[in-house]
Write a protein that binds this DNA or RNA. Structure first.
Lengths: 346, 346
DNA sequence: TTGTACGCGTTATCAT
DNA sequence: ATGATAACGCGTACAA
């Protein structure tokens, strides 16, 4: 009964390898744990036989006793948005190299992070969780995910924000957007822009509200009028229509600061292909993120760059550190931004 | 000792819930299994207390006994390519609705699907595996993944192909590319194209070789010259450079059939912004996939569409069926393609 | 409907 | 360096 079962393919277990190699089951376990002490020659023999039998330790069984699932949960609203897909790609690569697998969860696009999902997710016991959606209360998330390390990506004014959301107890990544925004506004001003519009992203997005706040602040500091704020949602289509509205119903603008690159593309296409305006001749456009598409010749977008590699490195650093020393004090990683000048301003 | 441990947060277990609700641990288990028989009122009380205690059944422990991990592995070379990120998004959404979580694994871009990854992956015991990389031998994959259901996406001439790769033992999805390609070639011919170039994708990609083969075949059937084949790799930058080569070093073409939409964008930008040729005036361009970017006004690409929703539905169907009836005969799902006419031909 | 006993595959503990 | 034993948290057969 326990010797043979009728499943088509019977998965090799440590016991099978042990029997085949004439060692104890424990020795097999140790062979797969580099730290365990085992006579090298014995380990080699075991690993060889394991390979022949196509044996791999079962992570589920292992996690049951080690309390480490080697799973990292990622919560995303849209896998197919260029920025996020890039980030998922880079994170998955980096984590895979460290022995962690990516567990992907999708939340509804309206950012309603329902408890259902978190409960569901918790069943998998991820060692860590990366939340891209910035509108989750730390308390909610950490309450649900015992073993997990919530990592929050917040923007500027980190300390003030942390205090407000009582998030200072958690590891977090701070993106200093102001630097890049200042450079962008300076460039726009230098080329004579007077009436700047801000093409917003999703209302609930923290990145968006912070971008709007900082742009307003920087414009004021430079003696310029406050931005005309046009609502959007980070998508091409919405940006396209919003730009048409701005110029047909509204009073237009001589510069558009978009909340991300994709929205900038929508604005550019509306200006050029429907409003017959020239970019940057009639209207200057600046984006945010610097996704690969931004250097495509049809757009050649001037944009505020967030360095993806740096960002991913910082995140992985936070995760690994928290995993190694669970009791350590919360750590803050900081990331700066800078303007990448291409052809849509000037 | 087993009553209290010193971990900061102690995960609620079925035992704890049972104690709190004054029921047996088994009752808790049953409360979470809809099929199990349990007095409704009792179940409700248990579920309520479970919610209060923030309890979720541990999937790892559960999978150990049920032999179902509720994990679906996805193997991708590039998360950030538009088509794949779309597909990952849709699949994750669909699978999540069915109670499965997506486990993401990245393979090297050169398609070298190394056994290391598969071994690593097998440790997680995914219930099913979707391989986007089309160059994995079924035998290799199935040998490594006992519990998994390899799903292969192959193109046209399914039976011939199946026989050649001895893949007929597995579930598979067949994409009939010929229909869309025929429509595209007819359109090109109708608008006077005579010299058609095929801008290739990754050499190892099965989709690519099949596309080239079918285009050649269709051109012949319509009495047109064979295509000028230009090597590429599905990326914008390579397509851009390849197009420059084609017109500066080579003899040019009056129509370019790109292996995917992104490559088509690269070709269009090279033609318009560097070679000062008009699209579609001087050169007509057709893509493949119909990603969201294809309707962006700057490109407005005529392209062969593969319906993503249909494709994902078919894949999920295959997976769920195989999970429910492991012994069932291999099933073939078929998908057709059609031309979406926009502004780059004619 | 409910409870008992056991096993899933692995590692930790404590021996030797 | 190695081996025996006891967990880890859960589902299932079986009995009640």
């Amino acid at each position: 009964m326990s010797e043979r079962n009728d499943r088509k393919v019977t998965r090799a277990t440590a016991d099978l390898v042990a029997r085949e190699a004439n060692v104890s089951r424990i020795a097999v376990s140790r062979a797969f744990n580099p730290n365990a002490s085992l006579k090298p020659e014995k380990r080699d023999r075991i690993l060889k036989i394991a390979r022949e039998l196509n044996y791999t330790p079962d992570m589920a069984a292992r996690s049951l006793v080690t309390r480490r699932s080697h799973l990292v949960g990622m919560i995303v609203p849209d896998v197919c948005s260029p920025w996020e897909s890039q980030e998922i790609d880079a994170l998955t690569t980096a984590l895979q190299a460290e022995g962690f697998a990516t567990l992907l969860f999708k939340v509804k696009a309206d950012f309603s992070m329902d408890q259902t999902l978190l409960t569901y997710m918790r069943g998998f016991n991820p060692d860590s969780v990366i939340a891209f959606t910035e509108n989750v209360e730390p308390a909610v998330l950490s309450g649900f995910l015992d073993r997990a390390v919530p990592v929050y990506i917040i923007y500027d004014d980190a300390e003030e924000f942390a205090a407000k959301r009582s998030t200072s107890l958690y590891d977090r990544l701070v993106v200093r957007q102001k630097e890049g925004i200042e450079q962008a506004v300076a460039l726009l001003q230098g080329y004579g822009a007077r009436r700047v519009a801000y093409l917003g992203g999703k209302r609930q997005s923290l990145a968006n509200t912070e971008r709007e706040r900082i742009i307003t602040q920087v414009l004021a500091e430079r003696g310029m009028a406050p931005p005309v704020v046009v609502p959007g949602d980070y998508t091409y289509d919405t940006a396209y229509r919003a730009t048409l509205d701005l110029f047909r119903v509204g009073d237009g603008a001589d510069a558009i600061f978009a909340s991300n690159d994709v929205a900038a593309f929508g604005a550019i296409d509306a200006l050029r292909h429907e409003l017959s305006l020239s970019v940057p001749g009639d209207v200057k456009v600046v984006g945010f993120d610097d996704i690969p598409q931004s250097h495509w010749k049809s757009y050649n977008l001037t944009t505020v760059r967030i360095d993806l590699a740096d960002r991913v490195r910082a995140l992985v650093r936070l995760i690994l550190r928290r995993l190694k020393t669970p009791g350590a004090d919360p750590l803050v990683e900081t990331l700066s931004t800078r303007l990448v000048v291409r052809g849509t301003v000037g």
